[in-house]
Write a protein that binds this DNA or RNA. Sequence first.
RNA 1: GGGCGAAUAGCUCAGCUGGUUAGAGCGCCUGCCUUACACGCAGGAUGUCGGGGGUUCGAAUCCCUCUUCGCCCACCA
Length: 889
Amino acid sequence: MTEPLAPQYDPSQIEAPLYAWWQERGFYKVDAHGSGEPYVIQIPPPNVTAVLHAGHGLNNTIQDVLIRFERMRGRRALWVPGTDHAGIATQNVVEKILAKEGLTRFDVGREEFVKRVWAFVNETGGQILEQLKALGASCDWSRTYFTLDEDLSRAVREVFVRLHEQGLIYRGKYIINWCPRCLTALSNEEAEKEETDGRIWHLRYPLADGSGSLVVATTRPETMLGDSAVAVHPDDPRYALLIGKHIRLPLVDRMIPIVGDDAVDPAFGSGAVKITPAHDQTDFEIGKRHDLEQINVMTPDAHINENAPERFRGLERYAARKAVVTEFETAGLLVKVEQHRHAVGHCYRCGTVVEPRLSDQWFVKMQPLAEPALAAYRDGRISFIPERQGDNYANWMENIRDWCISRQLWWGHRIPVWYCESADCSTTIVSRETPTRCTACGGSVRQDEDVLDTWFSSWLVPFSSLGWPDHTDDLAAFYPGTTLVTAPEILFFWVARMIMAGLEFKGEVPFKTVYLHGTVRDTQHRKMSKSLGNGIDPLEVIDRFGADALRYTMVSGMAVGTDLILDPADLDSSFAPGRNFANKLWNIGRFLLGHLEAGAAPIGSVPEGELTLADRWILARAHETIGTATQHYERFRLNDAAAAVYHFLWSDLADWYLEQVKPRLYGTHPGGESARAVAAHVFDIALRLLHPVMPFVTETLWKRLPSSAEQASISVASWPVEADGRADAAALVDFGALQALITAVRVLRADYAVSPGATVKLTVVDPSEAVRRAIDADSDTIRRLAKVEQLTVGPAPSEAGGTRVLDDRTTIVVPLGDLVDLDKECARLGSEAAKMEQLVAAQESKLSNDNFVSRAPANIIEKEREKLESWRAQAVTLREKRRALGCAD
RNA sequence: GGGCGAAUAGCUCAGCUGGUUAGAGCGCCUGCCUUACACGCAGGAUGUCGGGGGUUCGAAUCCCUCUUCGCCCACCA
């Protein structure tokens, strides 16, 4: 496990073996009787047939970051994985396979079909869980569930029966969303509304007594075959006299009444509406109020049925639409056709336009469940990130509608309802156990044909996955959970319903925080999808750049409340941040570990006096980074956490500290031991801070630190606390001065194109306190990193040189002989002085403004004064230098 | 039709409770194969913070308005 690092970073060589080792050691198995405060995340169970896509990648990366962070903080971090049987989706997949054999599910029959789905699921299902492992997901796989498992099925039955006993489940004939392709009912959430350009036809309906006619408007003319009334607003003066009269329905030749109903908007269209109770929600309700006939004119697959005149029968709904319109036109009853944009429901599984259909279905009465769920949000027992999503949730809860839970599918939890087959008994049995005989008459029983909505099992997952309805140790230990991480699309499908179920059956919210992250989109901001072909395959990314690169890129690109934009056409540049960073880490590790082979003393054993300015500085930066990164992780600002550690590792540690300590590590300078101790210490800290985001590289490097025990894993190492660094404001200031000085020399060198190998002389004129201390502490580093051969502090040399002003006082001069262009120096110093003077002037007027001085808080005024003084000093210094160079004014 | 959000460097985005000489990564330009890393090092350029108005001593940040894009919800046929 700890052979030397390969010269080249090759994630494919390290990631898989590492994951296997984590599994073997069981680091992520959580004991219900263990110690530590529980931290629980329930995975949004992917469809059992799903293949990992970018959305899963993002979703599961976030969860893994959180769970690893909390695990390292000493909490009993449990991430429960599972898969969803996904009724319609899975059934569709298997039906497609059957279709290749020229068969339909009806050809093979229910029993055989379900067998085939099981075989398919057992064979190919759950591959997404294996793919999550490639991502690094630290789930407790020993707890993996499938929503059709016996245990979870028992929970489903229990819940159905309980709700039924409470009168919250009922069966009835209502208008539901029907998918004519999947041949099943859908819930409101499953019928996705999409703005569509359509048309609206104005049809003339003649009065039966021949005294005139009415014009009605419709977007679905074919439904007129099932019209059983025309409705107008009861107070509409235009139609007051017509209420109670009859229409002779064209094409069908049926007498239908004109009724008055408040639901009609007199201002819309003609103010008269055709009423088709069997094919429209509103019409259905109006029909109920007026006791109208419900005439269903369509077959389940949306063809015209026998309730319509013979010439329309068998026509598909859009063909029927054409036929109806043509007949109206021929009869001179088509008044006009207009363009019309409106929302049309589409099946969320197959995209087919849903048909509102009158049918017998099972429903859950939601109002009583919604009230406590709304209260839990209002009183803060549950909160959302980003916060505004809470309004969305509340809005849905307030306007909740009953949930149609029956599906005319074969794949799913069969509804636990049986009907007595004896005609004169006809008892309905709702039972936890499967009855063999009628409980009333002893006759034979027949189970309801329908299955339950997939979400009827997933809304129970927070407790059903832990053994409910039994009283298990898991349930006692891990319910309620802590955080739920998911996409906003399933806020209503799943999240809201889990909250309702948790409160109803467990009396507690199932989690405290709901973190809703954004969507992965392409550069045109389109959602990635199979049909658009604009998806990114996370496995391909992992294959090419490694899971760490994928994870870092996703995390760093994802601020709270924003979407993640990636370019599917250019994976190289899309994932460059993660790829580059992982590679950088690898090389830092290679360099550092190479120098730690002799071991590194614990930081505590290094005498304070042996710490150099650079040592103190990097420890101070570690201290700061621990604080900020931890806070950001806690606040779900994962991108900020990642950025803080990135900056520490790359800019602070690699670019400055490691460059500074090289001579000590090489042994050309004394202090090698303390350098190794400090470097090992801060690298250890940084790896731990980064581990949640990049588990593989950090583990690989961390295991090779001298301090790491052979069998230990960073993933269960302790989270750094601020005291692991050292607060040291002075070191930050002084090393900052050192950096500024070096940078200034480098800038001069670049400006004058000094050849990279050449050394220069440097004079520091009138150094500030900080610069003075930096020079005293570490002139050697200045010489080396700025390639200075001779460093003097004193008056400016007579030789002409490039000049820079560092701060209020300090000026550096680099004599460059012929290279110096005096005019250029004068111009540059002049423009800098002018810029500074402008700032000074603005600042002076601000500070002499009574309004500002009297109204701004004292600390701000103080800060602004300091700024003014500093700028003034800089302006003065700049002017002085110009004079010293002999520049003309 | 309601509700919500976003517009900041060529691109993707930070900038959290008003006070920074407005930042990062990618890309771009210049110079470097400096024995950890060219997926690198050093340096650099680029922004009237969508337009207009307002509040304030002070606005990228708060308010109004316009424009342009998203998202969610909705039984006006």
